[in-house]
């Protein structure tokens, strides 16, 4: 089932409000990427930040919806992290500076203690974290390209992608960066892990069969199975809080839209 029909480029959907709404990134115009909020009840969508003048993308939320972290463009290939407290209506910013600097793919710990993101550093691209005030920057990885961090529902682990063994594979580690374990081992790109709400499974994206498709595995890396077969791209999976369904960005007839996918319990 299709959730959107405008066909515009979309990325990074995430459920909020106990699954009643979705926030996602859309290429609203050639010069503007925006965060959109889609109400599932009536299918209506609107900008999350109506007044945004620059591109904003890759939103992440705490389970209670109080905190929202997202990436904001400063122009000239420079990005900053905005952490918004929606209760207090305050913003904290982590700005790594100008000149081709910036972070991607923030994820917030369920207890709002840390925000983890991927950022160019130490001769590679590292996972680092700041506190909810955008301060106290700490490294979690130290080599190769590391990306797509995502906190487990209990906040104890981080799943992420890394090129440390050659190509992109999916790994899991403790939230403090210790105890790294490799979960996938296949030629090609394995990326964008997404925890199931019970923390038992991970959906992810792989091109191991020729194009980007959605896969699922147990949290220990076992029982990998492909969920979709489509000649076009399927990407950016996110779990509904009921743990039975995913939403993903599917390319169909050259149009990029949000789709449901039942995965069972």
């Amino acid at each position: 089932m299709q959730l959107t029909r405008d066909g515009k480029l979309k990325m990074d959907p995430v459920f909020i409000k106990n699954g009643e709404e979705l926030v996602y990134t859309v290429q609203e115009s050639p010069t503007q990427m925006s965060l959109m909020r889609l109400k599932l009840a009536d299918g209506s969508s609107e900008r999350l930040h109506p007044q945004a003048l620059t591109s904003e993308f890759e939103a992440a939320f705490t389970p209670d919806g109080r905190y929202c972290a997202f990436v904001q463009s400063k122009g000239n290939l420079s990005l900053k992290l905005v952490i918004r407290d929606t209760q207090q209506n305050k913003e904290a910013v982590f700005d790594p500076g100008g000149g081709f600097q910036g972070m991607r793919r923030p994820t917030i710990a369920p207890d709002a203690s840390r925000v983890v993101f991927s950022i160019p550093a130490d001769g590679g691209q590292q996972l680092q974290s700041v506190n909810i005030a955008g301060q106290d920057r700490k490294p979690l990885t130290t080599s190769s390209i590391n990306h797509w961090p995502t906190f487990s529902p209990d906040g104890q682990r981080l799943a992420f992608g890394s090129s440390r063994d050659g190509d992109y594979e999916i790994y899991v580690m403790d939230a403090d960066g210790n105890n790294v374990r490799r979960l996938t081992k296949s030629p090609g790109i394995d990326q964008r892990p997404a925890w199931s709400p019970d923390g038992q499974r991970l959906a992810f994206v792989s091109n191991r069969d020729g194009n980007y498709e959605i896969y699922m595995m147990q949290a220990d890396g076992s029982n990998v199975r492909r969920l979709i077969r489509n000649e076009e791209r399927d990407d950016y999976p996110t779990w509904h809080p009921d743990g039975k369904r995913l939403v993903f960005v599917g390319e169909r007839a050259g149009k990029s839209d949000l789709h449901w996918l039942d995965v069972g319990s």
């Binding site: 990427m33 993308f57 463009s73 290939l77």
Partner: peptide
């Protein structure tokens, strides 16, 4: 564009 007004096509410095 990822960063409007300053995305230089394939100029992928980061």
């Amino acid at each position: 564009a990822m960063t409007p007004n300053c995305d230089f096509g394939w100029d992928t410095h980061i």
